[in-house]
Write a protein that binds this DNA or RNA. Sequence first.
DNA 1: GTGGTCTAGACCACG
DNA 2: GTGGTCTAGACCACG
Lengths: 130, 130, 130, 130
Amino acid sequence: MITIDLKSRIPIYEQLKNNIIELVVLDVFKPGEKLPSVRTLAAELGVNPNTIQKSYQDLEKESIVYSLGGRGTFISEKDVIMSAYRKNALKDFLQSLKKLIKSDISADEVKRYVDKTYAAERRQDGGKYD
Amino acid sequence: MITIDLKSRIPIYEQLKNNIIELVVLDVFKPGEKLPSVRTLAAELGVNPNTIQKSYQDLEKESIVYSLGGRGTFISEKDVIMSAYRKNALKDFLQSLKKLIKSDISADEVKRYVDKTYAAERRQDGGKYD
Amino acid sequence: MITIDLKSRIPIYEQLKNNIIELVVLDVFKPGEKLPSVRTLAAELGVNPNTIQKSYQDLEKESIVYSLGGRGTFISEKDVIMSAYRKNALKDFLQSLKKLIKSDISADEVKRYVDKTYAAERRQDGGKYD
Amino acid sequence: MITIDLKSRIPIYEQLKNNIIELVVLDVFKPGEKLPSVRTLAAELGVNPNTIQKSYQDLEKESIVYSLGGRGTFISEKDVIMSAYRKNALKDFLQSLKKLIKSDISADEVKRYVDKTYAAERRQDGGKYD
DNA sequence: GTGGTCTAGACCACG
DNA sequence: GTGGTCTAGACCACG
C-alpha cells in the first residue's frame, strides 16, 4: 500500500508523508484508522525506524494524524486533511501557472492542458474499478 | 535587479539561477548581453564569488548563458531559454494539477482559477507600461 | 583504481570524471555500484573534498551517476553511459580524421592505422585474461 | 582569409595558430610568404595585438614560421609544417580510436565512418575548385 | 557517515 | 579585469 522510491531525490520521510496524505485523499485510509506501527512499517519498507518516526511526527504537527500514547497513530478528520492538501496543491498550481503565463502561453492552451489531464486521470480511475 | 533571500531554504545559487532565467524571460536581460562579472555580483549581493560562479556554470551547462574566460558571461539565444523555461513550468503545472484533481476539484473550477490568474497577471503587466 | 595526475593541465575534477566513465565502460564499475564517498576518495587521492564533489555533481548532471544525499553516489544504467561515451569518442574521431584527410593521407593508410590499433588493443585485452 | 570565432571556448590565440597552420597545409599560405603584421591582423580581426603576438611567438617556437627582425614573419618550409600537423592529427586520431574501440565498436563500422568522411570531404573539395 | 551548500582566499590563463 | 580551478574548513539535512 505504502511504497517509497529509494532512488528518488525526495527524502524518504517526505515521500512517506505525501504517500499517507494521498492515501487519505483517495479514501484508502479512513479517518480514525490506525496506521502501521513505526517498527512494522520500518521493517516492511526496509528503512530506518527513525525515518518513519520523523514522518509520523511531522504529520502529527500538521494535524494529519494524531497519536494516542502507547496505542498508536491514527488518521485525523478528513476535512482537515483535504483542505490542507488542496491548499497546498493550489499554491503549487498557481505558482506554476504564473510562470507559464510569463512564457506567453495563451489561456486557451492552458485550458486544453487542463482538459487533457482530466481526461487522462478519468481514464486511470476507470481502470482502477475494473 | 538581481536579489536573493539569504534566509530562504532554496540555495543561493539556485535563487540566482531562477532570478536570471526570469529576467531573460521578462526581456530585462537580452540575448548577447553581458551579465555582471562573478566578483562584481558577489560584492553586490554580499555572497562568496564561488557561489556566483556555481550559478553561472550551471546556467552555462543548461545553455542559458555562455561564459568566455577572460571576457565575461553572456545571455544565450532566447528561444533556447524560453523552451527550457516553459517545459519546466509545464511539468510543475501538470504535476500540481494532478494533485488538485485528486482532491475532487472540478475542471470548471480549475479553469476559473486559470482565468482569474490571467486577469491578475494582465493587470500587473498593464501597470508596467503606465 | 582511480588515479590522477596533479601535474597535468587537465583539471583534476575532469581527470576524475574521465577516469570513472572509463571504469564503467570497461566494466570495472558496475551499474548500481556505490562509488567511494566524497571524503574517502578525497583522502585517498590527496585532494580537497570539494574537487571530488564537483566531479560527482558533474557526472550526475550527465546521468553517469546518481547521488542520494546521506546515502552515497551510485553508477547509473550502463546504456546511458555507453551511448554518451561513444558519441563523444566518435565526435573526436571524426574531427581528427578530417584534419588527417587535409594532410593528404589516403583512406587505405588510415584503414591500416585502424587495423593496427585494433590488433594492439586486442593484444592488451588478451593480456588481461592470461 | 583568417577568421576567428569570439564565442568559441578555444582561446583566440590558439584558433589563430590552428588557422594559420591549416592554411599552410591547404596551400593557401606558401612557404616563404609573409604573414600580415601583428598590428594589421589585430585591426582586421578586432582583437588585441598581444593576442596576435602570442600566436606568432608560439608558431615560431614550433618552427611553423620564422621572423626576421623588423621585416616581418614568414612561413617556414612546408615539410616541417606538414609533418608536425600530421603527427598531431594522428595522435588525436589514435587516441579517439582507442576510446571508440573500448565502446565495442567493430573495425568494419569504423572503416565505414572513414569512407563516409572521405566521401564528404571530397565533395567539399570539389566545390572549392568549381 | 553521506552528499550539498557556502565562505574565505589563492593562483592561473586569457585578453 | 575576467572566468576557472583548487584548498581549507564550516555547517546542514538525511538516514
